[in-house]
Design a protein around this nucleic acid. Sequence first.
DNA 1: ACCCTCACCTGCACGC
DNA 2: TGCGTGCAGGTGAGGG
Length: 293
Amino acid sequence: MPELPEVEHVVRALRRVIVRRRIMAAEILLPKLVPPEGKAAFNRKIKGCRIIGVRRRGKFILIDLDRAKGLSHGRAARTRTGSGSVLMVHLRMTGRFRYLTIDEELPRHARAVFYLDNDRRLVFCDQRQFGVMKLVSYARLGGTKGIRELAPEPFSDDFSSKYLRDVLARSQRSLKTLLLDQTKVLGLGNIYASEALFRASVNPFKVSATLSVKRVGRLHQAIREVLSDALTDGSALRVNLEHPEGFSYGEAFENFWHVYDREGEPCVKCGAKIRRLTHGGRSTYWCPKCQKR
DNA sequence: ACCCTCACCTGCACGC
DNA sequence: TGCGTGCAGGTGAGGG
């Protein structure tokens, strides 16, 4: 499910329901979801924590926790930078959150359950079991493996056209491969990478370092556009933590992808047949006419 | 340091 | 109906 825009929608949905809730207990149903020290340590550390915020870095969901046993605001504020911790969650391919009432049954692929202080349960579900969770101290978050290496946020000033130019200039990989590398360009996944390249009218298989300055500029703009359209424009995905799936598709969804999953269909710009090629086990879609080498 | 392939999992759609 | 194959919106380890 998730590329950056989808993760952002999950973050917003979570924020609406879990901020200020206390975690009374956690139950890890899939041991490998948490690091080697194991679920006992995880449970011990997270039990009693208050959720004070939900944010995102790349495709990681960051749930800020306060260890204070819920006293004054002053106490809470101090612990935030002191003993505060952050629950890092990566949804990978099929990770989802559900927000359940006490009498709702656990979904089939429930992997972790957080019992909240309002008789609700926040449940992490994950069919393919690729998702991961980690509890780190607030102070050490930035240095944590996985976070440390990430490229700048795509909407930050650091992700400039010049930044992209420099990154591309140093790489002999194909553009499509490079756009999927979260340490180089942050936020795109297999769908939006194809979509961004299509919007920029650039060939996915071109060697990154050989892209002209003009095209780099187009690609830079296309990356931001495709992400911001997915964020605003009714979004591809309606995250609803109370929906059986955890989400549903919005109205605009049908027409959102121009090339992805449209092999053989006519290009929306020129009518040529969209092509698909798999490499490294991943499909790339492109228009052979609009995106010539 | 870079780049590629494979591995991690379950389940679904497809063709025979 | 059943079985084999390929594929699914992500990343990390391991090797050249």
